[in-house]
Simulated scan of single mutants.
Amino acid sequence: MTDRFAEQLLTWYDQHGRHDLPWHHDRTAYRVWVSEIMLQQTQVATVIPYYETFMARFPDVETLARAPVDDVLSHWSGLGYYARARHLHKAARQVVEQFGGRFPEDPETLETLAGIGRSTAAAIVAQAYGRRAAILDGNVKRVLARYHAVPGWPGQTRVLNRLWTLAETHTPEQRVRDYTQAIMDLGALICTRSAPRCDACPVRSGCEARARGATGRFPEPRPKKAKPEKSTWMVILEDRDGRILLERRPPTGIWGGLWSLPELDPAYTAEELPHACLSELGLACSEATLIGAFRHTLSHYHLHIQPARLTVLAQPPIAEPARFRWLYRDEALTLGLPAPIRGLLTEPEQAALL
């Protein structure tokens, strides 16, 4: 091993790195893959309990592939970025149907699976099979951008290509499994987004950003763009048996494929909600009782939610059973629900805290 960066990093990892994460045990491609997907845009401490519950329910790729997507989404509920769960389910089916239940061992083939990009494919190859492959997740981008003082936002093609070149350069031939975990740990534990712990950094002597006293300038942030503001009514429609109407969301877009409360145009007034429910949902309802409004921030916009509770006085049979369901609350809570909807069904007045 001739790369000084890798040498220093591995020496540090042996003493200070994370060696006992749940996906380090029985390190199969399946277990590594699930952890990598969950860790996209989510911190390790948040992921661990979800991962352990998910593994208990879906211990192997065949079980995941056979499971209903609603079951998968239910076990993902609260983790956010739900497209990851849908891709996970789709990729599991691909592995079973196209590869006989065995994950491919080369990055290029792994990248043909749903939801797996270049860095995730490399992480699976390195972590599960111990083969040399360079990773470049968010933590690694930050470490390399600072170490080499790479100017620009990593989302720009020019900057990203430069970081990939550096990632390839530093990835060693030996101990690649430890190296990939080490550089992720360095970004998560030491070279953090704010207030990096430079005095504890094993590669500080070669860090160009530290030498310039400019760690805060690298990597450059994404150009700021104000998030749009959107509003909606969310109606809790309860029939005389105590069941609540849920609607499955479209497969793409906000909360894709999850079950949610029906939404109505925010242009309606509270007094007009019974008429809206009749004209749009075919349900005769009582007057609306409003619940405290709150704002839920999504990746691309802020959503202002005004919940309202209405009692259904008369209801025809459901015309679209694949889209709508009448369920008791305990039944509804077993489905894949967005966090604010789960809050509205359990503690309506606390939903604003989610």
Rank of each mutant, 00 (worst) to 15 (best):
D241E: 14
Q8A: 12
P338S: 03
A226Q: 13
G206W: 01
R86Y: 01
I135E: 13
Y50P: 00
A319M: 06
I291Y: 15
V72C: 07
E287Y: 15
T311K: 00
T53E: 06
Q98V: 01
W76F: 07
K230V: 14
L337M: 08
E52N: 00
E263L: 10
A123Q: 10
R175N: 13
G282T: 02
R193S: 13
T232L: 03
R342D: 04
L258P: 08
Q98H: 03
A214Q: 10
L10K: 09
M234G: 02
Q156C: 00
H19K: 05
V95F: 05
K230L: 15
T2G: 14
E62D: 06
I37M: 07
Q43H: 06
A182V: 02
A45S: 05
R222M: 12
Y129F: 14
N139Q: 14
L237D: 04
A67L: 01
P104V: 04
T334F: 01
T46Y: 02
G206E: 06
I341C: 04
G138C: 12
V140M: 11
R93Y: 09
Q350F: 13
L333E: 14
G117A: 09
Q98Y: 06
C201V: 04
L246N: 05
E220K: 08
P221V: 08
A121L: 10
L337C: 09
H275C: 10
V176M: 06
A145D: 12
A133C: 11
I341N: 06
V125S: 09
I318K: 02
L264H: 11
Y82G: 09
A288W: 06
R309N: 11
R93T: 07
A195L: 15
T28R: 11
L136R: 14
E52L: 14
M55I: 10
R4Y: 11
A67S: 04
D185L: 05
L166M: 00
P316Y: 01
G100R: 02
S77A: 08
K224G: 12
D239W: 03
D178L: 00
G336I: 06
E320N: 15
L258Q: 14
D265A: 14
A126D: 09
R57S: 00
Q350E: 08
C198D: 01
A270P: 14
G242S: 08
L186H: 04
F58V: 01
C198T: 07
R31W: 06
T11I: 12
Q127L: 15
I135Y: 12
R212G: 02
G115F: 07
P307T: 04
A121H: 09
D199I: 15
P154G: 13
P348M: 11
L261A: 01
E97K: 02
I244C: 12
R86V: 06
D199A: 15
S35W: 05
H296A: 09
E62R: 10
V235L: 09
D137I: 14
G152Q: 13
G152D: 14
S35E: 03
R93L: 07
Y51F: 11
I244H: 13
G100W: 07
A308T: 08
A339N: 12
L79P: 08
L144E: 12
D239H: 04
A83H: 03
G343F: 07
G343Y: 05
R222V: 08
S35F: 11
V143M: 10
Q15V: 15
E97N: 05
Y268L: 10
Y268P: 09
Q15S: 15
P49T: 03
S299D: 08
D14I: 09
V96E: 03
H89V: 02
E229V: 10
E271P: 13
R325I: 09
G138W: 03
G253Q: 03
Q40K: 12
S205I: 15
